[in-house]
Amino acid sequence: MTHKSAAIIADKLTKLYGDLLAVDGISFQVDEGEIFGFLGPNGSGKTSTIRMLVGLSRPSGGRASVLGYDLPGESSQAKRYVGVVPDSSNLYDELSARENLLFMARLYGVPRKEQNSRVHRLLQDFGLYERRDDLFGTFSRGMKRALTIAAALVHEPRLLFLDEPTAGLDAAAARSLRRLISGLREKGMTVFLTTHYLTEADMLCDRIAILVQGRIVRIDTPEGLKHLIQDQSLIEFSFRGDVSALLADLQSRLEGGQAALLDSSRIRVYGGDPPRIFDAVFQSSRESGIGLESASTIRPSLEDAFLQITGLSPQVMAADKGSGKGSGVGR
């Protein structure tokens, strides 16, 4: 047994798949009762880290413990107190919502007399009670996701791993799920949340680790991350045409500022001297013949902090797993 107040401790945790270094010696600690966000673009090592922490794959190097149990040696003991929501909703299409939850309750050794009451309570909490006898295969994407989360809670875990819980959901379903996740914090559960939706992490997490190419580049509270760029100017320019090809030229004109493409017609500039930035953008717009539509200074968001810290474009983060759709965050 290790630290009592730490739900997860990772120390130089490493994962190699052949020659590919998926997780590069990361170290962090998650305290009991907090919602800890693991933020990074697809392929940054989030799922590989979760797989090691839930005992599905062996670390190539380093050490980790979950709820005081050392991994991988004591993973079967740890699994009794851990719930996992994988990135896909993988319950049984041929079983009803109730049967799926009962099956999971039995595998986790929930006492027989408590099984039905827990299942019914979860179905009610997740708004699925009316559909309890319908087959999982007939559910909508949002309902499947909700039942998958319910299945991970049936044994009342102390720690919940949520891997991309709202990926591919429409705005309403994503909002509803985020409310449920917030509710878990009030019950004192520790939540380890991986997401590539910045606004979602901002709304839900007490602390956030930013992961890029298998390495943690920063761990802080959402406010702390935003504070990093609070003193810098942030100006957003909208153009009347596609400015993707202009970015390199514009960057060379900005002294001390950093330009990032938000979409094909919008550019955000971080830092630098505002009058000079305006001059550079106006000049670039005149020379290219692409008219400037608007310019505004903005308050830094977590997305801005993330872009500044990682140097990645928001499009890289917005790219959804599998579906290519957004989560509906902020929509």
Binding site: G55, Q77, K79, V84, S88, Y108
Partner: peptide, 14 residues
């Protein structure tokens, strides 16, 4: 194929 075998391996079963 459906990833449900992986779900079974997430339980305390060996």
């Amino acid at each position: 194929r459906l990833g449900t075998l992986e779900r079974l391996l997430l339980t305390p079963l060996s």
